[in-house]
Amino acid sequence: MALPPIVLIALFIGFPILLALGFSLGFTGGLNHTISVIGQNVHEAQGASPTFGAYGDLFVDRRFLGDLGVTVIVTLVSTTAVVVLATGIGLYLKFRGGVLGKILSGLAVVPLFIPVVIASWAILGFYSADGFLRSVFALAGLEFPVWSFSMVTVIIGSVWTSLPFATLLVTSGLQAVPQAMIDAARDAGASFWRVVTSVVVPMAGVPIIIATTFTAIGILGSFTVPYFTGPNSPNMLGVDMSNYFSAFNQPQQAVVMAFVVFIIASGIAAVYVWANFRSAKESGAV
């Protein structure tokens, strides 16, 4: 009875992907006809042999290569920050607990309930030239740098929006580590760091990896935060795709970018699949 879900996935995910892949390779007939009539700078395939014209356009474009680099760097930095913060909060809750631990883990989840658009505006305002931070520093006679419209606010915004989900995943993973294991390690004379690095984190490894992959894929494809708070150039590929699609009216190039992001995300997704497989194996399902 697996048929209906498979039909659904094939129809609404697989088919559009194939259509887009065909379009990016210059197959502009059939369902791709209209978009190729409206779009500018569309490369058309000669007969059955595909054209890589749109790919070529982008990979010689310094702007695209720069934006690709920025996207990868923002993803790496933000993901690292999110995982470190989430693990830190989870560990504090596990070992100290108490009111502060609860407040920390509670606060970390708050961004989940604030729409990203609103949050982006708030972050932009907070770090802007006439923002809160600079005003406070100015009271003390200090000059705080202006971070609005820079990659710094994009990273702060990405961490802000990704932290709640990662914290939920990592915290629950860490909570699931049996206290008996920790006590046993301590009895054997292990220091706090030894317990963390050799027992707790490895045992919660799978949830942490899953949180990492989700966070990385989310940030890789983000649009709202870099669109509102980032500079005009260089910016992340999510913003570029939207620009190419509407402002520059070059849908084919936008689709090519989507495939570049798709390939990077597939690499991250492979890690996710591996982690899931490992956890299934541990629980004896495979």
């Binding site: 500018q40 702007r63 500079p231 005009n232 620009n243 402002a247 520059f248 070059q250």
Partner: peptide
């Protein structure tokens, strides 16, 4: 549209 594109390539940053 081309103006948008070229400005983006040639001016900011």
């Amino acid at each position: 549209k081309d103006l948008n594109n070229q400005w983006d390539q040639k001016v900011p940053g």
